[in-house]
Amino acid sequence: MSVLSIVLQVILGLGFLMFGLMKFGSKQMVEGFKGYGYPGAFRVFTGLIEVIAAGLVIAGLWIDGLAAWGGLLIVVTMIGAILTHIKIKDQLKQMLMPIILLILGLVVFLINYGSLFV
């Protein structure tokens, strides 16, 4: 495993764990999802997916293949986030964080892709 992958896995894992847990009840997240036009259940579902992705990329430090699955889950989640920002006609600057996280998740996925088939 490369140093780049380890660093990205730790950063993404901790970040997605934090933001995923915030989706379970943070007032800011509750209001944000209302503004996006999504029900509370979807906010909780998104938080659960983010916590699972965080667990996968962190566990991928020790178990081959899990980082790739976590990276893929991050990519799919961030595509959804970007599409949401497009749907509500946000400016590009509101989409920068999901775009950056998508790229980082894609890098983790691509670095660890080969371990899926071992």
Score class of each variant (00 low, 15 high):
48 L>R: 09
15 G>L: 10
24 F>C: 12
104 L>S: 03
14 L>H: 09
29 M>Q: 14
88 I>F: 11
44 V>C: 10
114 G>I: 01
29 M>Y: 09
22 M>C: 02
25 G>Y: 10
17 L>F: 14
13 G>E: 03
104 L>V: 13
118 V>W: 12
24 F>T: 11
59 A>S: 11
70 G>D: 03
95 M>E: 06
65 G>A: 13
20 G>S: 03
92 L>E: 10
112 N>M: 00
105 G>R: 05
17 L>H: 01
40 G>K: 08
83 L>D: 10
82 I>A: 14
35 G>S: 01
96 L>M: 15
20 G>I: 06
101 L>H: 04
22 M>D: 03
19 F>I: 15
36 Y>G: 07
62 W>R: 10
92 L>M: 10
80 G>F: 13
35 G>I: 00
24 F>G: 09
30 V>M: 12
91 Q>M: 05
30 V>I: 15
37 G>F: 00
92 L>Y: 12
33 F>V: 03
82 I>P: 08
108 V>K: 02
53 A>Q: 03
23 K>P: 00
97 M>T: 15
25 G>K: 05
108 V>W: 00
80 G>V: 14
32 G>D: 10
36 Y>R: 04
33 F>N: 04
47 G>M: 08
99 I>R: 04
64 D>Q: 15
106 L>S: 12
9 Q>F: 04
102 L>W: 15
15 G>K: 02
111 I>L: 14
48 L>G: 15
73 L>Y: 09
59 A>T: 06
99 I>M: 15
57 V>M: 11
61 L>D: 07
86 I>N: 13
107 V>W: 02
34 K>Y: 06
111 I>F: 12
7 V>Q: 06
87 K>P: 07
91 Q>N: 14
103 I>E: 06
99 I>D: 09
97 M>A: 14
66 L>P: 07
57 V>H: 08
58 I>Y: 10
83 L>W: 12
74 I>D: 03
117 F>G: 06
50 E>C: 02
115 S>C: 02
49 I>P: 01
85 H>R: 14
73 L>E: 07
91 Q>I: 12
22 M>T: 10
71 G>C: 01
111 I>G: 00
15 G>M: 03
78 M>G: 00
105 G>E: 00
103 I>C: 07
11 I>F: 07
68 A>Y: 02
102 L>F: 15
79 I>P: 07
20 G>H: 00
31 E>T: 14
59 A>M: 07
66 L>D: 11
31 E>L: 13
16 F>Q: 03
8 L>V: 11
25 G>W: 09
19 F>D: 01
89 K>G: 05
32 G>E: 13
